[in-house]
Design a protein around this nucleic acid. Structure first.
Lengths: 195, 195, 195, 195
DNA sequence: ACGTAATCGAGACGGTACGTCCCGTCTTTCT
DNA sequence: AGAAAGACGGGACGTACCGTCTCGATTACGT
């Protein structure tokens, strides 16, 4: 029988937690990722710096949680064809990346994740997992309909879709359009057709 | 009368220039982009900090020049088919991103470029221009052979190829393989086939 | 196993009290007064911080009690002459200040007492009272023997003796010797002789 | 020929130096030694913290220089008798310790000096040296007049005078009076009379 | 040939943020 | 009812860089 974390002492305050996340999301939107300091977050949240460092190891982890918590709400596309399913999925990615806090945070945040080995491993499991599940569902149905082969690597296609959208919007800063979602989806759908 | 650069006073020392670039490339490889300080570059190059700031406006510009100078000596692929031309081109991107200094610098460097409007505009013109030229040549020949339509947006495909490779390697840190180049090229080639 | 005091008030009180004082004495000796934190004392004594703050108002009060409890045991000198009585008394002061915990605590402790008005008032009543009683006894006998006048201010002489020893040992850190006690006593005794 | 400190680079700014010392003296007077932070000194002096740490190793060294620079312009007492010379000298010590910055700084400052071995050694050479010279002159003349023996230890008497005054004023916080100077001087003078 | 002027290495400058440590108080749970 | 455990808001610590600014010392060019 495992002892279990008995959790002694005063428990962590959920209101501090929420205030910190809100302050972080606000500040990253206002000032950008690089210019946001944890000291400023603490001040804005009316919290001591230790209260932040007690919960998160640094700026990257905090901002990740502050900005990407509402992610999973997007529904699995199911429109009847592979191409239009992919269009919806790409549009979901665009919407996610378009939210002001996400737009302000993404490039610096991903750079920090990429630079730290222990964080890097979490990009797939944390960032990409929800979209991967949706993509896998889309693929299952498309395969059932015979619109695509069985050997397609889901991860590769996912990386291509996410990478394309992130590079366009996050790095190049180009405005996203439904047109972009359609073009990307069309190429991807045709590219993984069978034969 | 544009007398122009009368060039009075002591001219800038070309050896300092080279020493700074070499030190920057070394340090970014050793410590990573974020942890590299211009003070450390100056010390390593046996140079004053002003000598750096006189030539470059900041870390991003310096590292860009230090890491992406030997750039595009890469030849335009011309293998006879669109798919294998694209395979070569993607492999060229992979090779560029695989060089240790580039691998160490890219995520942080692109994040800094993305965060600064005046730098952001230069990503297309500086980073992407050579690859775009190669891709345009590849497309011309493919169109002449009838392998693809005339309306394909070169920028979109380029962003997709670069974004995919950058996200896979730079952000996720996954090792690149010839297999990756082949898969990406196959999907892209088939995706832009004519009706 | 002892039956344990069934009384509800503070069954572990005395042991916590003792453990805290012992931990404080140990820590102040090991790390010095300034570097000793009450958190460390609490940890060392396996006690909550509140248990300390419930009994003492701060570091100064705690350390005072931890270090100067065994004080009063010194006997009243009675050797037959003023000078040798004073020698014994000064040597008693030296011995008190030489104990490692006292030596480590004294300068910082007295500085804290001096800086806080409500503590400052207690130096005479707490620190100096025992020595003052001994000195008063010595003076009574010396006056009876005619070795000194009746108008000598006990407080002034006491401050001079304590101040001299404290400055020499506590501030300057010079090793104390019996020779020091003799010299100080000789000057003092002769200094307060009647005409 | 020794290379000599070539002194390269930008020289340290004397105005910063002065501004820091002034701010430190003001703040220690206003808030006390313990409550004075180097960050506050930096802000008050409109100076970066590094500029302070570049010149002084910590609070103790800074405050010492800030408070005890205008020191010993005090004249050597020469009134004709040992006792009244000592009265003047003790009064000089009282005056020095009575200046508001000195009064605010002394206990904490001496405690810090006492706690750090490398600083402790400097108390004699820095704090006490001027008074010791004055005392030595007084003793020379008194010996020439036959008012005292030749074997009296100057350091011991000096420590007694300084220790007494410091303990009375600095630690106990008792107001100094001319009466105190007279009493101390009388005892000391009589105490060191020749057999 | 000589002064003017820009560059050089060096390092100090005013600032800002870092991540850690303590303070003294406050909530929990466990006994 | 108290105790331990430890989280809380706050603030100082000493360090690292930032990008700018003196220094004295070169090194060229235009008289």
């Amino acid at each position: 029988m495992p002892a279990e974390t008995t959790s002694r002492g005063r428990p962590r305050d959920a209101r501090s937690h929420a205030a910190i996340l809100a302050a972080a999301a606000d500040l990253v939107t206002e000032t950008g990722y690089a210019a946001m300091s944890l000291g400023a977050v603490a001040t804005r949240a009316r919290v001591g710096k230790d209260t932040i460092y007690r919960r998160w190891s640094g700026k990257a982890e905090l901002v990740y949680e502050a900005v990407f918590t509402t992610t999973d709400t997007a529904p699995v596309p199911d429109t009847g064809t592979l191409e239009s399913d992919l269009t919806v999925l790409v549009q979901q990615l665009i919407d996610e990346f378009s939210a002001p806090p996400a737009a302000a945070a993404l490039p610096g945040l991903l750079a920090d994740f990429a630079a730290a080995p222990q964080l890097r491993a979490r990009i797939r499991s944390a960032f990409l997992a929800p979209a991967k599940q949706r993509l896998a569902s889309v693929f299952e149905r498309a395969q059932a309909r015979g619109e695509m082969g069985l050997s397609v690597e889901t991860d590769l296609v996912l990386d291509a879709l996410v990478g394309t959208v992130f590079f366009r919007m996050g790095i190049l800063g180009e405005p996203a359009s439904l047109q972009l979602a359609r073009s990307v989806a069309r190429i991807a759908a045709k590219g993984i057709e069978p034969r």
